[in-house]
């Protein structure tokens, strides 16, 4: 059974389309990375899935129900982000003791262990916490609630490198203990890559890719060599990214299954064939300008 299903999902803010004709499904017990640059529509999509906002058109179901105003979805879903609100009158310890009433799978042992590990102060108020500590506390709530659908929207905002690493490890270990569906949004793949199963790549509110991370790594290859040879070989191909290396060489990223024999031909022509890191590919696929930042400077120089 699909946990989430979206069909032709669109959300407008005035004239801007934050999410545009999005269709996809997410299966049970999959950790999905929702990746895209700022403004790609990640948060908007997640808030629709959580039932916080309504789509302008299209259909969304979570656990086979429309999430907007669904208690079933709310009881089985937690949405963790840096804007999570808690009563300013309650201390962190009081918030933690209030949570089990809401979530039947709540694991107080885990919550307390994590709380102590990250040396949080039980008497502190949530709104007095620093950005990174807030993220850490919210993450603990998110993990300990053990909801069948756990949504993390940019969960590592403001966390130190060490805490971030611990977070990914905690998330994975908790998932291994209690497999469940998780969505994890980030503008970069970075450290999250290895713990993800699938990746959903958004650009300007549209779906760019939705596939297993392991496939993403083999989705594209880079050709490096003489400029003319490369432009000849890649003629008619969709080039995801291209840059010049010095005056005579260039580097071009294309689909691995682009054209039969293209790679063999390239090898024969003395062109190097290199893998493309998943994170780089995500950036290439979601940037409008194929030449990247170098393009700006190269063009500027020619005047």
């Amino acid at each position: 059974m699909d946990v989430i299903s979206c069909q032709g999902l669109t959300k407008n803010f005035g004239r801007i389309k934050a999410v545009s004709d999005l269709s996809f499904t997410i299966g049970q017990n999959v950790i999905t990375g929702l990746i895209g640059p700022n403004g790609a529509g990640k948060t908007t999509l997640l808030k629709i899935i959580a039932g916080f906002t309504r789509p302008s058109s299209g259909k969304v179901t979570v656990f086979s129900e429309n999430p907007f105003n669904s208690l079933k979805v709310s009881a089985n879903m937690i949405f963790v982000d840096e804007h999570m609100k808690f009563p300013s009158s309650l201390s962190l310890a009081q918030i933690m003791s209030a949570a089990p009433a809401f979530y039947k799978n709540w694991d107080m042992g885990l919550a307390k262990e994590l709380f102590a590990y990250f040396s949080l102060n039980p008497g502190q108020r949530h709104h007095h916490l620093s950005k990174g500590t807030k993220s850490t506390f919210n993450m603990i709530i998110g993990l300990a609630s053990r909801c069948p659908l756990t949504i993390f929207d940019e969960p590592t905002a403001g966390m130190d490198a060490g805490v971030r690493k611990d977070f990914y490890r905690a998330l994975l270990r908790d998932y291994l203990q209690k497999p469940r569906s998780m969505i994890f949004s980030s503008h970069l793949l970075n450290e999250a890559e290895d713990i993800l199963e699938d990746i959903l790549l958004l650009q300007a509110g549209q779906k760019r890719l939705h596939l297993p991370v392991t496939d993403l790594k083999e989705f594209a290859v880079a050709l490096r060599g003489k400029k003319e040879v490369i432009s000849e070989l890649t003629a008619g191909q969709e080039i995801y990214h291209q840059k010049n290396i010095g005056k005579e060489h260039s580097y071009a990223v294309i689909r691995r299954d682009a054209a039969d024999g293209l790679l063999k031909k390239s090898a024969a022509a003395g062109i190097e064939i290199l893998p493309v890191a998943a994170e780089d590919l995500c950036v290439y696929l979601t940037t409008r300008n194929r030449g990247g930042i170098d393009h700006v400077f190269d063009r500027n120089q020619s005047f």
């Binding site: 999959v30 950790i31 990914y168 490890r169 994975l172 270990r173 291994l176 290895d194 713990i195 993800l196 199963e197 297993p212 991370v213 392991t214």
Partner: peptide
């Protein structure tokens, strides 16, 4: 293996 290498079990 997922726990040992800190990777997704599907991988």
């Amino acid at each position: 293996l997922a726990e040992m290498f800190n990777i997704n079990p599907a991988t």
